[in-house]
Design a protein around this nucleic acid. Sequence first.
DNA 1: CGTAACCTTGAACGACTTCAACTCACGTGG
DNA 2: CCACGTGAGTTGAAGTCGTTCAAGGTTACG
Lengths: 258, 258
Amino acid sequence: MALASDNPRDEQRDVKERLLARPAPPAPKIACFHCPARTSDLCRGVADKDLEELFASSSRIRLKAEETLILDGDEASTVYNVISGAMRLTRLSGDGRRQILGFLFTGNYIGLTPDTLYHFNAEAVSDVELCAFDRRRLETLFKLHPAMEATFRAMAAKVIDQTYDLLFTLGQRTAVERVASFLLYLREAEQCPGKPGAPLHLPMTRTDIADFLGLTIETVSRSFTKLRTDKIIHLVDAHRVEVLRPDLLLAAAGEEAP
Amino acid sequence: MALASDNPRDEQRDVKERLLARPAPPAPKIACFHCPARTSDLCRGVADKDLEELFASSSRIRLKAEETLILDGDEASTVYNVISGAMRLTRLSGDGRRQILGFLFTGNYIGLTPDTLYHFNAEAVSDVELCAFDRRRLETLFKLHPAMEATFRAMAAKVIDQTYDLLFTLGQRTAVERVASFLLYLREAEQCPGKPGAPLHLPMTRTDIADFLGLTIETVSRSFTKLRTDKIIHLVDAHRVEVLRPDLLLAAAGEEAP
DNA sequence: CGTAACCTTGAACGACTTCAACTCACGTGG
DNA sequence: CCACGTGAGTTGAAGTCGTTCAAGGTTACG
């Protein structure tokens, strides 16, 4: 990886500036109509007739895998909606430890915090396409569209609920339970729950999963193996998991009696 | 403890109904003026002249230690502000495991969730005095008082920040680090940071601390002992801790190099 | 004064980590 | 085209930290 600057913060900011400066790519008049995130989260509450307004206040940006979008302490002036790919929210300590606070997929949003600053980093797990909104304009939009406001509340509630779930997982569950919980979390968080038989896609590395669950990569790997030898999942490869027995997975997560 | 019903949920709800039904105790015309929570969190944004309005929409309630205020799944129709005492927010699993999501002290609020339901339990750690607001009325008040809205945002941001801190603690820190972090958390969360030399009051039991930090009570106790033998704290008794060396406590929490 | 609840301490155990070796997929360049 | 190097993932063996089990101590209250 070529380093243009010896200050990682500056370097990352350069990436961000460059991406934000780039005008929206040549897109259909109103891209929102065909946006994969049209029916989810941020935009769901907007009526078709208001899409133009929403589109006008947005701009598309792209990130390559591992690029940084937000640094802890940045001013929270922009709200992002994930159109495709996966992002991660992280918090770091001085001595290099990292906790992943959550993953974000198509339709999830980043940055609608009540604070004026972000208190986490946001990085791309895979190549990512985002829709960026000016926060003030978006909040004005909320006031104009009660349905959007309601949708936002539901989204925020879901985020809080997921965060509490993760707290419970980190505080109370064993390694295998954590990994099982993680797979259930992914099943819910990843967009298409349409295909029940389709294997689950894990865009993140074992290191990401470990830093999310408060484990080491070795323990994560061993837990996957345990679930595999128990015939609860099938590991197509390291990034594709087929859930063979959802009921047993639930039990393995400590959610129910087997 | 006398059981009026064999269903704990009903029993607890009875407590709640009774307390909510009780009219505000004989108080000065506008109790808010002398409320210990006047200058913190929910009410800080209200100008003196608007206090009457705020007071009119509120009612005082009291809880004894260990009484339940909110059950997971209850309708989120009321917002509470802690006037005195300590509360805890918890999440339970079917098999009896418990994670404490946070503690609440004077000036902290409970229940301003974006959802229509609560997704946690709220219980009194000590005897507690609360101020109850109808949520809809409070939200209307927010719209009328921009300063209140701003204050609410700051409060919500603090809660999220603390929750992320706890996530990091549970995922990344060792036992002693967790307990040290807990003491730092208490120092910040408990109202009066005015007296730097005064011992910290821990109203909760070791079991509460353990369920907050994802440890057992034995490990919590051993960690306190470790901090004591290292001359970082002085254990006046089980519920009073004097921080002798704030710098070393910070280092013990893994926040900085010693 | 006795009981019970809470806290502390000790010893043995077990779960997860650490350290290390090995496999596999992929990409690069000889 | 294959050798080589690299990075990610898996697996094994040893070690460590926190848990479990057990006992003793302290405090509060009837």
